Simulated assay, not measured.
Amino acid sequence: MSKPYPNAAATGFDWFKSSYSSGDQSCVEVAKIPGLVPVRDSKNPQGPALALAPYVWSAFVDFAKNDA
């Protein structure tokens, strides 16, 4: 389940990068809002974002940890 946000910067969310980010901006950013996990490309903060259901985000993180 996801919801598109055409302009991620216009959401007013507080965006966060992982502390594991290498600093080269090749990562995603997430925001904390109840019931959703908004995700955007750190290289394009003015671009689109997706808001994922928490279980979808958890599955993605588990996949990235285990299969990367």
Rank of each mutant, 00 (worst) to 15 (best):
N44V: 12
V30C: 04
P34G: 01
V37D: 03
D41N: 05
F60D: 09
V61R: 05
P34M: 06
F63R: 13
A49Y: 08
D62T: 11
F63T: 13
V39R: 01
A53T: 10
S42Y: 03
A59G: 04
G47N: 01
L50D: 04
D67K: 07
F63K: 13
A64M: 15
V61M: 05
A64W: 11
A59M: 01
N44W: 07
D62P: 00
K43Q: 06
N66F: 08
N66G: 12
I33N: 00
V61A: 12
A64C: 05
N66M: 06
I33H: 01
V56F: 11
N66P: 00
G35V: 05
I33E: 00
V39W: 09
P45M: 06
P45S: 08
S58L: 13
S42A: 13
A51V: 01
K43G: 03
W57S: 08
A31L: 02
N44Q: 15
V37K: 01
D62V: 08
P48R: 15
V39G: 07
R40D: 02
I33T: 07
P34F: 09
P34T: 14
K32L: 14
L50M: 15
A53Y: 10
D67T: 06
R40V: 02
P48L: 11
P48N: 13
L52T: 08
N44S: 12
G35Y: 09
A64K: 14
A51M: 05
K65V: 14
G47R: 10
A53V: 09
